[in-house]
Design a protein around this nucleic acid. Sequence first.
DNA 1: TCAGTGACTGACC
DNA 2: GGGTCAGCCACTG
Length: 112
Amino acid sequence: MSNKEKVDFFENVYSVVKKIPFGKVTTYGAIAKYLGSSKSARVVGWAMNASHLNKDIPAHRVVNRIGLLTGKKHFFGINLMRQLLENEGLIIENDQIKDFELFFWDPIKELE
DNA sequence: TCAGTGACTGACC
DNA sequence: GGGTCAGCCACTG
């Protein structure tokens, strides 16, 4: 079977996430769409889950489509994800990024 | 092999 | 305008 392709998908996710510039964020759906299947947003989330072991992945810069920090509970500290984002100049209000669109970084447009 | 689950999303009511 | 539902794909038991 072709495990390689699956791994490849994960690697693609990682490489995109790594390219998210400081102070910017993106969504699972945007990454999934950039990789060819916008339906695979959940798989992107799974990739983030697997990225736990990979500290080079700024998983805190990936949120759902409304800027909600749904993945914060997967961080060691509940406030860690928020703290990291605030450290990059973002404003977190009620576990949600304030003015999310202003900080939204679209790999489809930016990487094209 | 089958069924359940999830860091999602879009559509529908 | 918010709550719910159903697809979506990969992983696990």
